[in-house]
């Protein structure tokens, strides 16, 4: 209004002047450039330094393929399990009152506060040679530490909270009116859950799964402790990167790292897309 009349940029009472805004934005961008973009770009740069041929070779090498397969496998088990758990926990916390509810929510946050190395160590202490749970599996053929099951367990542990933490506030905010309506109309528990509760949280759920997956594929610390670094058998992609780097095989290391970085970028892209969608859906899910 006044801007049109005066012909100058309007000076609202509650924003900074244009020059301050530009300075702040420039500062933020510079920070991002130095600490995020430059390192990321250098990964791709180093990966392709010796040409496409070396790049492809590094990725199709048997140990590398095994690492990729193992990462996909671990994530493929951890993510669905944590999805089911996350939905169940969020549903219990948001729709019901019960004793120990606060304890449950605190426990859900535990993997976030514990160092990843400790997360891995837990399983070594439990199932290792002198571990207190070693007796349980002693007579079976199952090996947990330095084998696949251990890696899967460690991955599940560290990615535990993602889905639950995303869904709990969302479900709490949505309340129980919709579910009560569905029940009053004759739906049973499962029908209510499937037709009413889940669709109401679908974008939050997708978002949580995405974050869970990104972490599952990229986890280093916990898996490192538990895996034993047996080439071709118990190496995930992040572990493989470390091995290659320690052998001074930089091109190959960066090649593998670039795959992980691409995954990160893909996750970021999908996350932004969902945030736009999610934001709309969230505002629609507010009580009308």
């Amino acid at each position: 209004m006044s801007a049109v009349l005066s012909g100058k940029a309007s000076h609202s009472a509650v924003t900074e002047s244009a020059s301050v805004r530009r300075l702040l934005i420039a500062g933020a961008l510079l920070f991002l450039l130095l600490f995020l973009l430059l390192p990321l770009m250098s990964v791709f740069f180093e990966a392709l330094r010796n040409g496409i041929g070396t790049y492809v070779e590094a990725l199709t090498e048997p140990d590398a393929l095994a690492a990729i397969k193992l990462t996909l496998f671990a994530a493929g088990i951890a993510v669905p399990l944590n999805l089911v758990f996350g939905v169940a926990a969020a549903w219990a916390v948001a729709k019901f009152e019960f004793r120990g509810k606060t304890l449950l929510t605190t426990l859900i946050d535990l993997p976030f506060s514990v160092s990843p190395v400790v997360s891995g160590l837990i399983y070594v202490l439990m199932f290792g040679a002198s571990g207190w749970a070693a007796g349980l599996i002693a007579d079976t053929n199952i090996q947990i530490i330095f084998a696949l099951p251990g890696i899967v367990l460690a991955t599940i542990f560290v990615t535990f909270p993602f889905v639950a933490r995303e869904l709990i506030p969302l479900m709490q905010e949505q309340g129980t009116d919709d579910e009560q309506a569905a029940l009053s109309l004759g739906a049973n528990g499962w029908q209510t859950f499937w037709h009413v509760t889940l669709p109401n949280v679908r974008w939050g759920l997708l978002y949580g799964v995405l974050l869970c997956n990104a972490r599952a594929m990229g986890e280093f610390g916990a898996v490192s402790v538990v895996s034993g670094h047996i080439r071709g058998e118990t190496n995930t992609m992040p572990l493989h990167v470390e091995i290659l780097y320690n052998e001074y095989n930089f091109a190959a290391a960066f090649a593998m790292a670039s795959v992980l970085a691409s995954l990160a970028l893909l996750t970021l892209g999908l996350k932004s897309l969902l945030e736009t969608r999610h934001g709309e859906a969230l505002s629609q899910s507010h009580k009308h």
């Binding site: 009560q180 309506a181 569905a182 739906a187 629609q284 009308h288």
Partner: peptide, 19 residues
Amino acid sequence: PLRKRQIGFVFQHYALFKH
């Protein structure tokens, strides 16, 4: 239980299924 009472309930904020 609620689902067998054959009552119709209308909420103050409608509780329509948004999707």
